[in-house]
Structure formats: C-alpha cells, structure tokens
Computed example of a mutant assay.
Amino acid sequence: MSTLISSELADFISGPVMMVVSTRDQRFRATIGRGTGALYDEATGLIDLFVCRAQWPDVVENAAPGGKIAATFVRPTDYLCYQIKGVIEDITPATEAEAARGQLYVERMLTLMEALEVRRAQLSHSLCARDLMRIGFHPSDVFLQSPGPHAGERLAGVTA
C-alpha cells in the first residue's frame, strides 16, 4: 500500500462518492468533468479513474501520459472530501468488466442521491457510463477538502 493511499482512503475513493476530475491542456487551462468510479491498485500504486469520453471529451483528450491530474472525491452523506493530485501513467478504453462496474457506480450514486432528495433527473445527465476511458495515475499529493478549518490541508505528498 502506498504511503499516500491508506487502505481507508482506497476504500473511500472506490465507495459511494461523487468525483470531479481535472486535466489541463497544453496552455495549462483546466478542463473539468465527472468521474464514473475509481479504484486504487495496490500492486501498481495507480489510481484508476473512469471518465465518459463522450461527455467529457476535453478531460480525456488532455489526459496524456506524464500530464497532471487532480481528482476530488466527495461523500454526499457527510461531505467528507479529499483531493488527490498526481501524474498520469496511461489512458486506455475501459474493459468490459470496468464498463459494467461504471454502470453499477452510476446506479449506486443515483440511488444514493435520490435518498438525499436529489432527483435522478438532476444528475442523470452528468453521470455517464458509456464510452468509458480508464485514466491510470500515480498519486503525488493528498489533501483534505471537507469544509471547515482544515480544508486544503495536505495530508500526504511527495517531497522533492
């Protein structure tokens, strides 16, 4: 297990959380989209984040090996929030199994949000499990982003 990604954080990012992912273009302008599930692979040290290419084409287009990425993971039931920054290792189309996992993620999040009185129609257009791409990245920094006095606090990071 990476010193940056604890088993608790690995469970958190693969759980019922909303995800916002940002990559940047060659002029360093941010592009932002929603993630459709994530996993931490202890063996490789990569976080695999899934993004709908059809819905967030700029995020995917700017996700190049060696490029920077930031992903924010928010649990809607209590707004516990972490941001993980890193360097992209690779980007590939999702496998059939990963696409099925993405579809389960969408259904799970729509159900959870509905229980929190957010109508499916409000989110169904921004949660997408088709044409998924897997962006694998090595985490370099972890920040607590929950509202409060510790928002923005670095929890772990690679030092130069």
Score class of each variant (00 low, 15 high):
56 W>P: 05
56 W>D: 15
56 W>I: 12
56 W>M: 13
56 W>N: 15
56 W>H: 15
57 P>E: 11
57 P>A: 12
57 P>M: 10
58 D>P: 02
59 V>H: 06
59 V>Y: 04
59 V>K: 08
59 V>Q: 02
60 V>H: 01
60 V>Q: 04
61 E>S: 15
62 N>L: 08
63 A>Q: 00
63 A>E: 02
64 A>S: 09
64 A>W: 06
64 A>G: 10
65 P>C: 02
65 P>A: 09
65 P>F: 00
65 P>G: 00
67 G>I: 01
67 G>S: 05
67 G>D: 06
68 K>N: 14
68 K>V: 14
68 K>C: 13
69 I>Y: 06
69 I>Q: 02
69 I>W: 07
70 A>I: 05
70 A>V: 13
70 A>T: 10
71 A>F: 01
72 T>I: 14
72 T>Q: 12
72 T>A: 11
72 T>R: 09
73 F>T: 08
73 F>S: 04
74 V>N: 13
75 R>Q: 07
76 P>L: 09
76 P>F: 11
77 T>L: 05
77 T>V: 11
77 T>G: 06
78 D>N: 11
78 D>Y: 00
78 D>W: 00
79 Y>F: 14
79 Y>D: 12
80 L>I: 07
80 L>V: 12
81 C>D: 09
81 C>P: 00
81 C>T: 15
81 C>L: 07
82 Y>Q: 07
82 Y>M: 05
83 Q>K: 13
83 Q>C: 09
84 I>V: 11
85 K>P: 00
85 K>I: 09
86 G>Y: 01
86 G>N: 07
86 G>T: 06
86 G>W: 02
86 G>F: 04
87 V>Q: 09
87 V>K: 08
87 V>R: 13
87 V>Y: 07
87 V>C: 10
88 I>H: 00
88 I>D: 00
89 E>N: 11
89 E>R: 13
91 I>G: 06
91 I>A: 11
91 I>L: 03
91 I>F: 01
92 T>R: 15
92 T>A: 14
92 T>H: 12
92 T>K: 15
92 T>E: 11
93 P>M: 11
93 P>G: 10
94 A>R: 03
94 A>G: 09
94 A>P: 03
